Simulated scan of single mutants.
Amino acid sequence: MTRWRAVAGGFALAACSEALVFAWTGRVTLLGGLAGSALAGYLAGGGSAEGAWHGLLTAMAWGIVLIPGLVALSVVTDAPLPFPIEYLVPYLDSAGEATAAILLTASLPNVAAGAIGSYTRSQDERARRDGERPQRRRADGDVDEA
């Protein structure tokens, strides 16, 4: 089941971080989307597949906003392609290769980031659960773990 609040949180982080990067450097990257996908995976929890799904949804939602923004920037200014796509273009020979490269660089890393986010949450929950393990006292006052 999709947790839309997790996707919205990831989208908000992606938008804010990309806005900061653009204001600071004048360039657009795909790194804000990665951070947003990782946050969405963390918020969604529920295993790696769940995190990967929410990471992909966040990437697609962010892409719906980012791509028209990039087109507008390229029309108004001479904005370069986003990192890392600008470094891949010289190695591509056809429009099909370019389309596949753009789609893969805009989706697969976000899926992995979402899965890593949910894995991180499961590790946090496990550490929290282990830290709250009940303790019992022995007769002589020493503490043993249950």
Rank of each mutant, 00 (worst) to 15 (best):
69 G>P: 05
7 V>G: 08
45 G>P: 04
35 A>I: 13
32 G>V: 00
76 V>M: 08
31 L>S: 08
53 W>F: 09
53 W>Q: 12
31 L>R: 05
60 M>A: 15
21 V>F: 00
12 A>C: 09
67 I>D: 14
11 F>W: 11
20 L>W: 06
22 F>D: 08
36 G>D: 00
32 G>N: 09
56 L>S: 11
15 A>W: 04
33 G>I: 08
30 L>A: 07
51 G>F: 01
28 V>N: 09
62 W>D: 00
67 I>Q: 08
41 G>T: 03
38 A>D: 06
76 V>F: 11
15 A>G: 06
39 L>V: 06
43 L>T: 06
24 W>P: 06
64 I>T: 11
29 T>M: 06
42 Y>H: 12
41 G>W: 00
80 P>D: 11
76 V>D: 14
58 T>Y: 06
19 A>V: 04
68 P>M: 06
44 A>G: 09
35 A>D: 14
15 A>T: 13
5 R>A: 14
72 A>V: 14
70 L>W: 02
8 A>N: 11
41 G>D: 04
64 I>D: 06
62 W>Y: 03
74 S>E: 15
32 G>A: 04
65 V>S: 00
72 A>P: 09
65 V>E: 00
11 F>C: 11
16 C>E: 12
58 T>W: 03
48 S>I: 14
50 E>Y: 01
54 H>E: 09
72 A>N: 15
48 S>G: 15
27 R>A: 06
57 L>H: 09
31 L>Y: 10
53 W>P: 02
54 H>Q: 07
51 G>L: 01
30 L>E: 07
40 A>C: 07
62 W>Q: 00
75 V>S: 13
20 L>N: 05
31 L>E: 06
23 A>T: 14
26 G>P: 03
43 L>N: 04
28 V>P: 02
37 S>L: 03
23 A>K: 15
58 T>E: 10
53 W>E: 12
39 L>M: 07
47 G>R: 04
66 L>P: 00
8 A>V: 13
48 S>Y: 13
49 A>M: 12
7 V>S: 12
59 A>Q: 07
32 G>E: 05
68 P>C: 05
45 G>I: 01
64 I>Y: 06
69 G>F: 05
10 G>S: 07
77 T>S: 14
22 F>C: 03
30 L>Y: 06
63 G>K: 05
76 V>P: 02
79 A>M: 10
63 G>M: 01
79 A>C: 10
76 V>L: 14
47 G>N: 07
46 G>K: 02
66 L>M: 11
9 G>L: 02
14 A>R: 10
39 L>N: 07
55 G>S: 12
80 P>H: 08
42 Y>E: 10
66 L>W: 05
35 A>T: 14
43 L>K: 07
